[in-house]
Design a protein around this nucleic acid. Structure first.
Length: 684
DNA sequence: GCGGAGTTCTTTTTT
DNA sequence: AGAACTCCGC
């Protein structure tokens, strides 16, 4: 059994798949069969008799989780497994855990997950003086580094940070009062629970004897600590990742987790997968040239298994229209020559660059699918409906109450909402309870007679709907429309038809969910969709367009990457990191299998202005255009030189061997001796 | 409270 | 350029 399972793996992959106990670090370069290896390992563990229920596999995206599940199941006979192994995103795991253990924090498990947009609104309602995006990212940073509001307050020096800490505290209180949970909480709250309850931590760790983590280079501090707790009774942690593909630093991922894995976990067995099966040698060569400009890496090189291929084309255009024309022409030719549109993709660093492409494709009458972009569940009409559903499952959800109390319009405006809110705060009850607990006369005293009547009608409607829901989940949606006329409120609006289409689709989802899961309730549906961002609609043949981030893990025979201009790619801005930009470039290039075209323009229309641009340094760094940009001059290295490394710090050269234009150095970093290429260190 | 006109900000990336 | 937010007269 296991022989056939392993027969298609190379030696390194086999080593990784069959290493069972202890900590295991699989450094898997792009296209090196990472998913194959890890899914085979999962199947292998089961094949040698390990209880599937004791295996936990964590991923970052639903897409990755689904793909791995599918592939692992095809490797084992699906029928073999009566309790399937848990394979899900980190956040989903947190959600499952909280469903069972939320009571440990003295909170009920009927909590609701809020998304980024909700989070922004809540924070904005707390403080309008400080830029919301700053507050959002600072608060998230605090949560992901386990800093409580009290600690944040105590350590804040500047007035600004004291204010931020204050908003943080209010925000956390708001979430707790309304029993809301944000994305960070899905990791943070389980961690807090496990930390406070040693027995539960032991029990949970014992439940999951074998843990695997995909894309480890993108984990943050909190995820690392959570993993430590989960591994506390064993050391069976297998992580897969590629330091060169770490592209989520902006949301708190720390590359240190993978760079220091063998110090974090004892007796680590390391396997490197450096053979690339995806791209032509030509593509790999340029990808390698680019990434070699980074210092902050473990230093590995992808080795090709294919032959040299077509050379990489670089398009130079006056503006985005010319660029689009060239790409549309090329894609047309490819498809006319019999290539499948599904094998073609166009990538960009910034989503806004898709606009001219979309126009061009529309004009040419060509199909395309835009991956990412405006998510289905982020549309206003869908969020309204979700807010209604939330109110139906939890009357105390003030946030949702405010969102829909005047949708469709029923004459309840800002002032009325404020009055209800003030009353609710003074009496320490939820906003809906202000309506429910008081007689019409009492409410009239707060908001006036007319509004009081409207509010009571609203209350009665909700109560009726709840009854219908108890009776039949299938009838409930019709009753909902009958009561609130939400769908028809879009009847004569400009983009009403589109929105109604979305509404119908959403109703379809709900019905389908209840058909598939008759025993589950509305709140389960709500938390399920909160973690879903993929619009995995059924596409037919179409060219894909997406951001580089969205392309991670994918591969395409024919690839175009646009926007190779300084400022766009590398994107220069607040908090941007040139090494991470370069890794993005590396990720983008290594998506290509056979053909790759890069493009830059001299001017682009962006944010309402036309900007003059110069070509990206990445083009010369990857050796695609003769670098007018200075190649860093290489100084000679010799034994005894002092050097500085970004991760390992200062060290002394013990041995220096010339290797091409670099030196292969053996460096002693205070007792820690490592072999490092001279391009990764700086001479001091 | 509503809707239209004017103004400001955005988008880098996602669970 | 477009969305989102603010202001003002009805």
């Amino acid at each position: 059994m296991s022989d056939t399972l392993l027969s298609s793996l190379n030696e390194a992959q086999k080593d990784a798949a069959t290493h069972i106990d202890g900590s295991l670090l699989i450094l898997a370069g792009a296209g090196s069969g990472k998913t194959k290896t890890i899914t085979t390992r999962l199947a292998y563990l089961i094949s040698i008799g390990i209880d599937p229920a004791s295996i936990l596999t964590l991923t970052f995206t639903n897409k990755a989780a689904n793909e791995m599940r599918e592939r692992a199941y095809s490797l084992i006979d699906g029928a073999f497994v009566n309790t399937p192994p848990l394979l899900c995103t980190f956040h989903k795991f947190g959600l499952l855990f909280l469903k069972f253990h939320m009571n440990e924090l003295n909170r009920k498990n009927n909590f609701i997950i809020i998304d980024t947009d909700d989070k922004k609104r809540i924070i904005k309602s707390i403080n309008k003086e400080i830029t919301t995006s700053v507050l959002v990212s600072e608060i998230s940073k605090y949560k992901n580094t386990l800093l409580s509001p009290e600690e944040a307050k105590a350590t804040a020096q500047l007035k600004l940070y004291q204010e931020i800490a204050d908003v943080y505290e209010k925000y956390e209180n708001y979430l707790a009062e309304n029993n809301l949970v944000d994305f960070d909480d899905l990791l943070l709250l389980p961690y807090k629970i496990l930390l406070a309850n040693e027995n539960l931590a032991k029990e949970t760790s014992q439940k999951y004897q074998y843990i695997m983590v995909d894309e480890y280079q993108d984990t943050n501090e909190l995820q690392y600590r959570l993993l430590r707790l989960l591994c506390s009774t064993h050391n069976n942690l297998c992580v897969v990742g590629d330091d060169d593909q770490s592209i989520y630093g902006w949301r708190g991922a720390t590359i240190k987790n993978i760079l220091n894995f063998n110090e974090h976990f004892e007796d680590t067995f390391v396997v490197k997968l450096e053979e690339n099966y995806r791209s032509t040698d030509t593509i790999l060569d340029h990808a390698n040239q680019l990434i070699e400009h980074n210092r902050d890496r473990l230093g590995k090189k992808l080795v090709g298994t294919r032959k040299k291929g077509d050379s990489i084309r670089v398009y130079e255009s006056g503006d985005e229209n010319e660029e689009t024309r060239k790409i549309v022409d090329d894609v047309k030719k490819l498809i006319d020559s019999g290539e499948s549109a599904n094998d073609v993709a166009i990538l960009f660093r910034v989503n806004a660059l898709s606009r001219s492409l979309e126009e061009g494709f529309n004009k040419a009458g060509m199909n395309y699918k835009l991956v990412g972009g405006m998510k289905f569940y982020e549309r206003a009409e869908i969020k309204d409906l979700i807010a209604y559903m939330r109110i139906l499952t939890n009357k105390d959800d003030n946030f949702s109450f405010k969102r829909i109390i005047n949708k469709p319009k029923r004459g309840i405006g800002k002032t009325t909402i404020e009055k209800i809110e003030n009353y609710s705060l003074q009496n320490n009850i939820s906003m809906f309870d202000v309506v429910i607990n008081n007689t019409p006369e009492e409410i009239a005293a707060i908001v006036g007679k007319k509004n009081a009547r409207t509010l009571k009608v609203f209350e009665a409607s909700i109560i009726d709907l709840k009854e219908v829901m108890e009776e039949s989940k299938m009838k409930f949606l019709d009753a909902f429309e009958e009561t609130f006329d939400y769908r028809s409120s879009y009847d004569n609006l400009p983009d009403g038809a589109d929105r109604q289409g979305n509404i119908d689709e959403f109703y379809g989802y709900i019905r389908d969910f209840f058909i598939q899961n008759p025993h589950l309730e509305l709140k389960d549906f709500l938390n399920e969709i909160a973690l879903e961002s993929e619009n995995d609609e059924l596409y037919n043949e179409a060219v894909s367009m997406m951001s580089i981030h969205a392309s991670k893990g994918l591969e395409f025979k024919h690839l175009f990457i646009i926007g190779f201009e300084e400022g766009f790619f590398p994107l220069i801005g607040d908090g941007s990191d040139i090494e991470e930009e370069r890794r993005l470039g590396y990720v983008a290039i290594t998506r290509a299998m056979d053909n790759l075209t890069l493009s830059f323009v001299h001017s682009r229309f962006y944010k309402g202005k036309r900007a003059q641009l110069t070509k990206s340094r990445f083009l010369s760094e990857s050796g695609l255009i003769k670098g007018s940009l200075t190649l860093e001059k290489q100084s000679a290295y010799k034994k005894g030189d002092l050097v500085q490394h970004k991760i390992f710090g200062m060290g002394r050269v013990q041995k220096a061997v010339k290797a091409g234009k670099d030196y292969k150095l053996t460096i002693n970093f205070g007792g820690n001796v490592r072999d490092i290429l001279s391009s990764f260190v700086e001479k001091i």
